[in-house]
Design a protein around this nucleic acid. Sequence first.
DNA 1: AGCTTTGGCTAGCGGC
DNA 2: GCCGCTAGCCAA
Length: 860
Amino acid sequence: MTDPILSAFVDGNQVSIWRRDAQGKLFERRERAEWVAYLRAADVDEALARQLRSSRFTREFKVEGSWARLGFKDDYVRSQMCRTRGENTSFFDSKGVKTYEADVGAVRRWFTDTGATIEKPRRCYVDFEIDSRVPFSRKEDARVLSWAVVDDGETALVRVLAEETNGAEGDLLGELWELMEGYDQVLAWSGDGFDFPVWWARTDLLNLGVETRRLHYLDHLALFERMNKMSAESGDEKQSMKLHSIATAILGHGKDDFDASRTYESWAAKDPRLPKYNLKDAVLLREIEEKTGFGDLFNTIAEVCRVLPDSRGLLPTQQMDGYMLRLGQERGVRFPTKFYKEGLKPEQYEGAHVMEPEFRGIARGVHVADFASIYPSIILTWNMSPETWRDASPAGPVPEGLCRCPLTGHHFDNGAEGILPTALRDLMSKRQVWVEKKAELPPGTEAWHAAGRKSAAYKVVGLAFYGVVGSMFSRYFDKRVAESITQNGVWLLKSTIAAAAERSLRVGYGDTDAIFVDNVSDTEFAAFVAWCNAELFPAMLREAGCVRNEVKLAYEKKFRSLVIVAAKSYVGFWEHYKGKQAEAGAKPEIKGLAYKRGDAALLTRRLQGEMIDLIGKGHLRAEPYREALDRALRHVLNDQLPVEEIVIVKGISKPLHEYGKGGGDDDEKGTEPAHVRVARALRERGEHVGEGTRVEYFVADGSVSPQVVLPIDQYGDVDVDRFYYWEKQVYKPTQALLEAAFPDVDWKTGYERVRPPKARGRKARVLEGQLGFEASTPAAGACVVDLLESEEGVFEDIKAAVVRYPGTKQLVLHVRLASGALAVLDSRLRVSGSQRMLAEIYGLRLAARAATEAWEASLL
DNA sequence: AGCTTTGGCTAGCGGC
DNA sequence: GCCGCTAGCCAA
């Protein structure tokens, strides 16, 4: 064993290893980088052994038990000899000798061979402000104007560039690097895409001659996204991943009000708000960490898995590699070589069982039982691992010494525990230690939180291991194992559902590892769960040949009421949870509904939230729901809608040029999705749009196809299509919820369709004559008609229709423009219409505004 | 230029 | 209005 280290990186043919002495002073030790491939000793004949021993490309060949360890001169040589690229068949592939772990980097090799662990890093948070005149795509060319560094203790520093010269910038960054001597890990929001590359590029350009590779660069946003997936509540905190939004959601306060697109002007004017803003950002990072503890959690995972606590270490494949390679080393097991993207053909497999929901209306007294850590428990029970798989006939009796996965017909050896089960059991038992330790500690104390984070870390890693086995990008990929894991889950769940039905329990829903039952008492249900554990599962597992049993069904909770809208979409109000009575006003459990979706407008989430509250309060008549609906409808159609209520946010998941059908010619491409069209518009005006960008937009006209969608900052110049918002965005998801809860009530009339029929020809003229009567404010109506009739040049053939909306005093005019296009004015003379008539509409708006002002003045 | 999985719902879009 | 398709987000 080796002392824990702080950091390590490859430098040529050496591994640079960093530690600190008792005083905290850094020191480096260098060791030879090992570029290794393992071969099965049985695959190496005498001639090959001689060849490998004497080759000038190798520097080590030794047989250790059933494995031969082959050390190469350098990584290039190793790659040449082990990796087949296209026509270029590698030395070992041409010989038909399979290599193991031949892609493993020298740092990973070093950790694996030495068993060294990672020490808790000294953490800090950084933020840079750079010259705003340089576009994002050339950010590395932009001068650093200021930096801020904050740590978990007292340090909170900010420094500003003294003058616009390389010398001054060198001094600025030099001071930063000096400060970094005291730290090992740096967090920056979106650091991977911005702060870090800028920092490295400027350091390089200014020839500062410092070692940049020692630090662990961790993208705080990437960290947050990965960890928060498990705990995000409503859609609010998913809408934007900008620091300001996350800070506001998590901390209740955001960034300084400062125009970050004019940092240069601010710097030139020696504006003190620049450093203040800069520092505030770094402080927010520390506060987010204080609140979430995600950084501590990840550092624990890094420790457990022996990955460096940087952005790369966030990847489950890296974590599993770190853990498994070392475990394999200890047990004399080697894993296959896996070069990046070599000979990959998609290999999909069957996943979990999801039951069609059978509850109707509001279900009462619904018990939920679920399998504890279902996939890890299955892996342990069937001793599933790539090396314990056995070839045997899926029919007939289960062969002696094996166990069978009934749905896939795969077999595993019951003998010595496989390496995957060992890893999981290790993680689960280590987790148990912290679970128990936490239970002993006083709740809320730092030690209590720390124990909780450790326990969560082990759980997260354990669950991710199944996914990695199912990932064809991983060296542990084994479709037979992965599919057998999921299908054993299907077998257990379906059998449980069938057994429940036989015993007259009504199972109304089930998904992957849980069943929902509504027609029995607590004691009856508890008895059923106990019977499953004591009788059903042991019998089933015996039949399958399993000699281990880690499968456990647990009575998790009971809903006093539950509405299932569709599979994976429901809201439930707890009666009790894990034996504890729920508090009266406890928040309901909401799954899959628009309420939880980051791509739903706030109007949508809020309306659904209101309905959920009403259901929770136990209202059974339609009136209170209708009142709220009417209020919402009036609001959507009449009121000034704040931008945050109507903005729609969707992510860009791939480079923009890859969107469009079939990837054919540009002409062949179909229309792209709405948010992609907006993304293009943003890029055209010079904004940075790439993978991961969240596009904020609104729908200006949903009545045409493709829809007219605009970047959110154009809201105000152009109004939203209020009919579209109500019908498609806002009401639809709520309608689905209400119809699920009250299937016998009519939730269509008056709400489902609110868009007026298109005005045309004579009819419109007739309606125009009624303007004075229909309008809630006759003066307004008259004013508009005057306006329209006087603007002959623009509105050659005016056909105006006045339409009232149910439950509202909404007044809408449809105006046929000279071009033949149709514009829509609402009672406040705001306009919506299709994009190609925007110019015309602008003209109309200006005129309309003048008319409104004249009308308002006349009231005085 | 690095990658945890499958299942399910919903919306937009184009073609029929 | 239905269907096939792409796409995003969420449940497990």
